[in-house]
Computed example of a mutant assay.
Amino acid sequence: MFAEERYRQISSLVTTDGRVTVAGLSSRFGITKETVRRDLALLETDGVLRRVHGGAIAGSGATTTESSLTSRSSRHADEKKRIAHAALSLVPDSGAVVLDAGSTTGALAELLVQEARQDLSVITHSVPIAAMISGAGLSVDLVGGRVRALTSAAVGSSTVAHYARLRADVAFLGVNGLGADFGLSTPDVDEAAVKTAIVHSGRRVALLTHSSKFDEETLVSFAHLEDIDVLITDQAPRGPLVDALFDAGVEVIVA
C-alpha cells in the first residue's frame, strides 16, 4: 500500500471512530509503530487529527483540511516530476506564464530553472517559486499580499487585483479537489479567490494535479471544468469525472 492511501485510510478511521491507536494501526497496516507515529505526526501537521498518548483523536473536518507545502512536496514526488515534464511542452519559449502556488507547479519551476529560459517571464504569488526563479537569475514577477504560512503563498485583495490586470500566455494551476459536479476546489476562501483570478489571467489554463485529487470536494469551488483547457495528471480519470471533462472540452494529458 502506498503511503498516500494509508494516510487516507487513517484519516477515514479517525473521522469515523473518533480515535485510533498506534498499536491498532501498526497491526492493521503491517507497519512498525515508529512508521505509524511518523504518519500521525504528518497528519497532525496537516490538521487532520491531534496526537494523544498511544494514538490520535479527530481534528478538523475533511473539507477544510489542508496539507502544508512541506508535507505535500514529499508526496508523489516521482509522479509530480512526470506531470511537470509534460507541462513543460506547454511553456512558450518567450512571453509570460503564471505559476500557481503548490508542489507540482514548484516541480515545473525547477525545470524552467534547469532550462534557463531567459526570454520567459514567470509570474507567481508563491514565495518559494519566486525565490527559486530569481535565484537562477531569471525573470520573475512576485505578486504580493498577505503570505499564508501553510502554503507560503500571497493572498488577499491586492493579490487578486494584480492577477485581474494580467493576461499571460499560459496559467498553470494547482488544486485540492477535482470533481465532476463541484469542479475545482480548495479548502481556504482566500486561496480560492486568488485561484479564480489566476484562471481568468491566462489565455490558456492548464491544471496540474495528481490523481489522488480526483473526485475530491473541499470547501470552496473556485472554477468550473469549462474554465480549464488542459488537465495534466499521472493517471487517466474514470467514471463521471472523465465524462464531465469530455463534455467540458478539456484535453487530458497523462504523464
Rank of each mutant, 00 (worst) to 15 (best):
L231N: 06
V252P: 00
I83Q: 11
V147N: 04
T21L: 04
D100Y: 04
S89G: 09
G102K: 08
V113Q: 02
A130H: 00
I198S: 14
I232Y: 02
V189Q: 11
Y7D: 14
L207E: 12
V140A: 10
A3P: 07
A86V: 10
G55K: 07
A248I: 00
T124C: 01
V170N: 05
A130S: 08
Y7T: 11
R203Q: 14
G183P: 12
E44I: 02
L173S: 08
S134I: 01
A180I: 03
G137K: 02
A41M: 02
V199A: 14
V160S: 06
D141L: 06
F2V: 09
V122G: 00
V48K: 08
L49W: 04
I253E: 01
R8N: 14
L42V: 14
P128D: 00
E79A: 12
H125D: 01
K213Y: 07
S27D: 15
L112Q: 03
S134F: 00
G249T: 01
G18H: 08
L111V: 03
T105C: 15
I198N: 08
A86C: 13
G135M: 02
G95H: 14
R238H: 10
G47Q: 04
D141F: 03
V98M: 11
S134Y: 00
S94F: 13
R146D: 10
P187N: 06
F222L: 08
A136F: 01
L231A: 04
V242R: 05
S152R: 14
D93N: 15
A197G: 11
A149R: 11
G54H: 07
D229I: 03
P240C: 01
I133D: 02
F182I: 00
L99R: 09
K80P: 14
F29H: 10
S73C: 08
V155K: 06
L112Y: 04
G249R: 02
D17G: 04
G202I: 08
A223N: 13
T65A: 12
L112P: 07
